[in-house]
Every structure is written in C-alpha cells, then in structure tokens.
Amino acid sequence: MKFLKIILATAIVLCIVLVATDYWISHKAEGYLYSKVADIPKNKVGLLLGTSKYIATGGINPYYTYRIDAAVALFKAGKIDYILISGDNSHISYNEPDTFKKDLVKRGIPENKIVLDYAGFRTLDSVIRAKKVFGQYSMTIISQKFHNQRAIYIAKNFDIDAIAFNAKDVTNRYGLKTRLREYLARSKAFMDIVFNVGPKFLGEKIPIG
C-alpha cells in the first residue's frame, strides 16, 4: 500500500509540473503571437519550423500543409523577405528542408529567397542556429500556435527578438495526440533552458541576404 501511495504521489507531482510548465511557456509567449497576416510586423527572415510531409498512414501531414500556406501568405504579403527552413536531415532518406523547399517553389517562392538549415533536429536547435549560424537576431517564427509558444520561449531566453505567425492548427484526433506530446516537449524545453543546453551542431556562419 505504501508503494502505491508513493507512485500516486509521484504521478500527481509530475502532472502538476507538466501543467505548470505548459502554463508558464504559454504565458511567456503572450504578445508575440499573430494569427492575421495584416497584423504582424515585418521581419527580414521567417523561420519555418520543419515537420514530416507524410503521416504514418501515408497521407499528407496537415501540419506540414498549413505551415507551407502560412509561409507563402507571409512572403506574398511582404511580411518576410526570406524563408529559412529548419528541419531534420539526420539520414539520407529523410530531408525536411529540401521537401519544404520543393513545395514552396511550386507555390511561387523564388529559390534565391529560400535558405536551408539541415541541422534543425529539434526546435531548440532551429531557433538558436538561426541566430548563431544564420545571424538573425530578430525573426518571425512560422508554425502552429502551440509550437510557436515553445519556440518563442526558447528565443527569448537566448536574447532573440522573435515574433511568431500561427499557421492553421489541427483539431482532429491526430492533433490531440500531438498536443499531448507537447506537454512533454515543453518540460524538456524548460529543462534545456535551466541547464543551458545548446544545439547539436553549430558550424560556420551563413549570412542571409
């Protein structure tokens, strides 16, 4: 019985920590998120956060589609001049930046306005590399709202003057699973900040524009 009480108490504490971290990161992002193209200030670079184009069942990932739509809308409205695509290219058969680039070009974005970051293995890497590798101290982050909140939290802790544009969200069961995983991702982001964790790779500087 004592062992079960310890397990229950531990579970309650973990739940409290997850909820508190989720609230704190959402709170810290307030005032930096935009959902209307007309309202968002202009930045030279939009940081488009990567994701897989396809879901496990083979269909198109709606998060991917909506991020493409958001990036195109911002560029065509003159709210960004360049799109920095940051995603995972950890092995030869999986290349988020190139996949995004191909679809952006199909949507009318000039190739010379697209910059690729192949070492955006996670959000922290993408945000910090945008500053330290690509020289961007201010930027517009492009993803869904829940993801933008975490990215803004990371950016502010690394002295990056970032705002974010919220791509359309996903509200079905697939979206619910993603949102539940976000609780864990936020706790990891909080701990990364506490322990000053940096990107997996940095490398030579790559200026934009």
Rank of each mutant, 00 (worst) to 15 (best):
H91R: 14
G31C: 03
L176F: 14
Q136D: 05
K76R: 13
D88S: 09
A130S: 14
A77E: 11
K205Y: 10
E96M: 08
L104S: 06
A29Q: 06
S143T: 00
R186I: 13
V37N: 01
L8R: 01
K205N: 13
A56C: 00
I109P: 05
A73H: 05
M1H: 05
F134A: 03
K102H: 03
A29T: 02
L33N: 03
T99Y: 04
V197W: 13
P199R: 14
I160K: 03
I154D: 02
I40S: 09
L8M: 05
D39M: 05
A29G: 02
I85V: 13
K177N: 14
L180T: 15
G203D: 07
A130P: 01
I6S: 06
K102V: 03
L8W: 02
K145M: 06
P97F: 09
R181P: 10
P199Y: 13
K44C: 02
T99I: 10
F158R: 14
Y174E: 13
I25T: 08
Y118W: 12
Y64L: 09
E182W: 12
I68R: 07
L124Q: 08
R181S: 15
T140K: 12
S86R: 08
V105I: 14
F134E: 04
R179S: 11
L124K: 03
F121W: 14
D192E: 15
E204N: 11
V133L: 09
A151D: 08
K131Y: 07
D39P: 02
A11R: 00
A11K: 00
K79G: 06
Y94S: 04
L4K: 05
A185W: 13
A130K: 02
R181T: 12
H147M: 12
K177C: 12
L202F: 15
T51R: 07
T178S: 15
A9W: 04
Y23A: 01
L184K: 15
L180Y: 15
A73N: 10
W24A: 03
D98V: 06
Y64C: 07
K113I: 02
K53V: 01
T171H: 15
W24E: 00
L14K: 05
